[in-house]
Computed example of a mutant assay.
Amino acid sequence: MQQQPQLLHAQADLRATPGKLVLSMASTPEELREVQRLRYKVFIETMGLSALARADRLDCDEFDEHCDHLIVRDANSLEVVGTYRLLSAARAHKLGRMYSEGEFDLSRLNVIRSRIVEAGRACIHPDYRGGSVIMLLWSGLAEYMRRERCDFLAGCASISLADGGHNAVAVYRQLIQRHLAPSEYRVTPHLPFPYTKLDPAQNVQVPALLKGYMRSGAWICGEPAWDPDFESADLFLLMPLANLDARYARHYGVAA
Rank of each mutant, 00 (worst) to 15 (best):
V42E: 01
D56F: 12
L95R: 13
V42Y: 01
S50R: 12
G130W: 08
R91K: 15
V22T: 11
E31C: 01
A242P: 06
P224R: 07
Y195T: 14
R146H: 14
D64N: 01
D13E: 08
E101K: 04
R97W: 01
R173D: 06
D127Q: 14
S100A: 12
S216A: 11
Q4S: 13
S139F: 12
V117R: 03
P240K: 05
Q11L: 07
D13Q: 11
G164T: 07
M135S: 14
M47H: 14
L210R: 04
E34W: 07
A92W: 05
A225R: 05
L198P: 01
D229I: 13
Q202S: 13
F152A: 13
S100T: 11
I134K: 07
F43M: 06
Q205E: 11
L52A: 02
A89N: 10
M47R: 15
R147C: 09
A242H: 09
V169E: 04
L86V: 01
L238Q: 03
V204M: 09
V22F: 06
N76L: 09
M135N: 13
C150A: 14
A154K: 09
V206K: 02
Q4L: 12
A181R: 00
S183H: 12
R54G: 13
L14G: 15
A26I: 02
V206Y: 01
N243A: 03
E31D: 02
P189F: 01
A122H: 03
E34R: 12
V204D: 06
D74L: 01
S50E: 14
R113D: 15
A208C: 06
Y195A: 09
P5H: 04
T196V: 06
H69K: 05
D199I: 08
V35T: 10
I112F: 13
M47E: 14
N76M: 07
I220V: 06
D61E: 03
L180Y: 11
V117T: 01
I124Y: 02
A218V: 09
R115N: 15
S77G: 02
E79M: 12
S114C: 08
